[in-house]
Design a protein around this nucleic acid. Structure first.
Length: 559
RNA sequence: UGACCCAUGGUGUAAUGGUAGCACUCCGGUUUUUGGUACCGUCAGUCAAGGUUCGAGUCCUUGUGGGUCAACCA
């Protein structure tokens, strides 16, 4: 076997260069740093797969670190969901950590900066500070409080910490350069007063560190070698480095921030704010609604961790803005489910078919292969009888040569059963076909080995025996938005592109073996698609979600 | 009228100065008791103009286009 040499992505190249320049391989360490203010989505999966993938590739530890510096937005519910999602994707973190673990260290370092004259307390309004900040094209001006004495700053900062000031009245700022071309370097805020309960530190603190002050220092504390984030943080890198430099000890490793482009998916939105809006406004049933691009939504929809990992792998990473075609994700899940999902028969849009020459009252249990792609999947028995359901669209009274399905006078194979021929049909007053009458070739049973069973007929239909069928609710999903990039318009709200038909609930008939299906079990409903048992399913009511339909070249032909 | 980042088929990515490749999509075909799968094939790309070089997708310059940055968010 000659393995193709896999090309490295640009992050791996940076790591290889660092290694070549002398960085010891055992110093490699990564982290995945979610803020627990929402559920993870498929874009986060790219970051998870990248960071944990690097950990696997270099045999390096990867921490799960919650970036929990804003108690106003963060909740335990989100922490739990994030942990569940990362585990479900199949990754193991080295340590579960929280930025809030470092609040004391961060505070001590802030005191140190004040003593060194590198930080000061400002008690102007945010409006005043915003004006002084300047604009991207104009330099800012110094705050009148910029040159307070160290003693004064220390006194004010401790009063902030002790809760003696109101929220919003005072902040601690780094003293850098109000004329810097990088706005983030214009005396950024390090601490603000927030008299809020924190999900981990409770009421211990009423001042909370800002992201920039926290993130780099946390990486440094954990000795993360490569701190990988998305592109919008590129301009934060100067600040990240400045902050790390304030506390850097040359015997320790200096973490390095590098940025990649976030992964966008067509026909959906990927911002937590917008996803939260869909949830809060009841447009979807929750963060785990199967139409959502969240990990929990995809899981409930029937996606496998393998398929999501593979998607991240084949989509790759780079630095340019992108909108990846959702067809690639769908390809990945079909590819995996094709190899792993047991085949069963279900009829979603039934019409009754009667086999006139089949004995009334007779039952037969026929042997069916569970998965022809997997020999170890074995066989099961499916019941057959005189009256069955088939799909309405599998019958036409008259049809041309291209139509391989059932029509009057023509033969088709019933999957795992017999060859039948349509004789006539009955219609209601609207011309809708209500019953189809057929005869069967009793020597043609699948697998019986007879000459008749080996006859070739062009079409094969799936079916369920009416007498034995279980009923099930099937939730058929379509894309949530009608535009491939619904949130790229300046003058239009993304919700204008919501697809009114993104959910279609159907009552279907399924073969009885499905009675024992468990939540999250995945199946291929033969000739239809992949389906997964929903968590709303119960002993009394089976509920399936359609993960993705099978490719359908017949439907394409008819377009 | 600033700083920084980016630009390869429809989409996503490779090629690290030496034959522009892979995957998805689309289209066509073979096989098939799933119009699925598998297999084969077709169409299709280096933003532009200069420069360096024997040789440029790659390096340089200037344009053009897109993105990011002015939260007490992360």
């Amino acid at each position: 076997m000659n393995e193709e040499k896999k090309s490295l992505n640009f992050i791996e190249q940076i790591i290889e260069e660092d290694l070549a320049k002398g960085l010891s391989k055992d110093k490699l360490r990564f982290r995945f740093p979610p803020e627990p203010n929402g559920y993870l989505h498929i874009g986060h999966a790219a970051s998870i797969c990248l960071n944990f993938g690097l950990g696997l590739k270099y045999n390096a530890p990867v921490n799960l670190r919650f970036d929990d510096t804003n108690p106003a937005k963060e909740e335990q519910e989100y922490v739990d969901s994030i942990k569940h999602d990362v585990q479900w994707l199949g990754f193991k973190w080295d340590k579960e950590l929280y930025s809030s673990d470092y609040f004391q260290q961060l505070f001590d370092w802030a005191v140190m900066l004040i003593k060194e004259g590198k930080a000061y307390v400002d008690n102007q309004t945010s409006e005043q500070m915003a004006i002084q900040k300047g604009t991207p094209t104009e330099a800012g001006t110094d705050s009148p409080n910029r040159n307070r004495t160290v003693e004064e700053n220390l006194d004010l900062f401790f009063k902030m910490k002790n809760g003696e000031f109101d929220e919003g009245s005072h902040v601690l700022r780094a003293k850098i350069d109000m004329a810097h071309t990088n706005m983030h370097m214009r005396d950024p805020i390090m601490y603000r007063i927030l008299k809020k309960h924190h999900h981990r530190t409770g009421n211990d603190w009423c001042i909370y560190p800002m992201y920039d002050w926290t993130h780099g220092e946390s990486d440094y504390i954990e000795q993360v070698s490569h701190s990988i984030c998305t592109l919008e943080f590129k301009s934060h890198r100067d600040l990240y480095d400045w902050y790390v430099n304030q506390v850097y000890d040359e015997n320790l490793l200096r973490p390095k921030q590098r940025e990649f482009a976030r992964r966008n998916l067509s026909y959906t939105v990927m911002s937590k704010r917008k996803l939260l809006q869909l949830v809060q406004e009841g447009i979807v049933a929750g963060w785990d609604d199967p139409r959502m691009p969240t990990i929990s939504g995809l899981r409930r929809r029937g996606y496998t961790p393998e398929s999501i990992r593979n998607f991240s792998e084949v989509a790759g990473i780079a630095k340019r803005d992108n909108v990846t075609d959702v067809a690639l994700l769908e390809y990945c899940v079909r590819d995996h489910l094709n190899k792993t999902a047991p085949r069963v028969m279900a009829v979603l849009d039934p019409v009754k078919l009667i086999i006139t020459n089949y004995p009334e009252g007779k039952d037969e249990w026929l042997t069916a292969e569970n998965n022809q792609e997997d020999e170890s999947a074995g066989f099961r028995e499916v019941p057959f009888s005189r009256e069955i359901y088939i799909e309405k669209e599998d019958f036409k009274e008259e049809a041309n040569k291209k139509f391989f399905r059932l029509s009057i006078g023509k033969e088709v194979r019933l999957k795992n059963a017999y060859i039948i021929k349509a004789e006539n049909c009955v219609k209601d007053e609207n011309g809708e076909i209500t019953e189809i009458y057929c005869t069967y070739d009793k020597d043609s049973r699948s697998g019986s080995g007879t000459e008749a069973s080996k006859r070739r007929v062009k079409g094969t239909l799936h079916w369920v025996s009416i007498k034995h069928a279980e009923t099930a609710e099937v939730r058929v999903y379509d894309r949530l938005f009608t535009h491939e990039a619904p949130d790229t318009f300046k003058d239009k709200n993304f919700k204008e592109f919501l697809n009114p038909n993104s959910l279609n609930i159907i009552n279907a008939y399924v073969e009885p073996s499905l009675k024992s299906a468990k939540v999250l079990d995945r199946f291929q409903f033969q000739r239809l698609g992949y389906f997964c048992v929903d968590q709303d399913s119960s002993k009394d009511k089976l509920i399936f979600n359609r993960t993705v339909p099978l490719r359908d070249s017949w439907a394409k032909m008819n377009k």
